[in-house]
């Protein structure tokens, strides 16, 4: 199994890694399948993600997708960030080995979870905006295991 140069770059030099104690949006998700855990922290001002950091307990793909995801949402509006898919993260990394696709789902879910937290802190019901929060168990079934998806 080989990772792309981009994946290895983001793994070796992760962007935006670390804690963010003054974040106003925090989401932690765990991959029930392989055990990876990802925490996304954001500072959101006027609906714009002005800063984003992550912490990840996981494999090379999990670290690289977290790193890339923070880059992709930084400076974006909350609405734009909600559109971010694991496919987009993978494409930005020049693909992932098929068995690692499930790790990229975690990045998408972690961003979503952070935005759900953001709305909740504002007293806004996230359901109509975000839809499924990614926290329910039904969520995991249709993301599929990497094998049936392409790089």
């Amino acid at each position: 199994m080989n990772y792309s140069k981009k994946v290895m770059d983001h793994f070796a030099h992760p962007r935006n890694v670390g804690d963010m104690p003054d974040a106003n949006a925090v989401g932690t998700v765990g991959n029930q399948k392989c055990g990876d855990i990802m925490k996304m922290m954001m500072k959101i001002e006027n609906d714009i993600i002005v800063d984003c950091k992550f912490q990840t307990f996981g494999c090379g793909a999990a670290v690289a997708t977290s790193s890339m995801a923070t880059e992709l949402v930084k400076g974006k509006t909350v609405q734009e960030a909600l559109q971010l898919s694991n496919k987009a993260v993978m494409e930005a990394l020049d693909g992932l080995p098929p068995v690692k696709v499930h790790c990229s789902v975690l990045a998408e879910e972690a961003i979503r979870a952070a935005l759900v937290d953001y709305y909740k802190r504002q007293g806004i019901d996230p359901e109509p905006i975000v839809g499924c929060s990614g926290e329910c168990s039904e969520c995991h079934h249709d993301h599929g295991h990497g094998e049936e998806e392409e790089e």
């Binding site: 992760p14 890694v17 670390g18 932690t28 855990i37 990802m38 912490q55 990840t56 307990f57 670290v63």
Partner: peptide
């Protein structure tokens, strides 16, 4: 140390 600094569960 590097990986633990990056780990949310450490």
């Amino acid at each position: 140390k590097t990986l633990r600094a990056m780990s949310p569960i450490w």
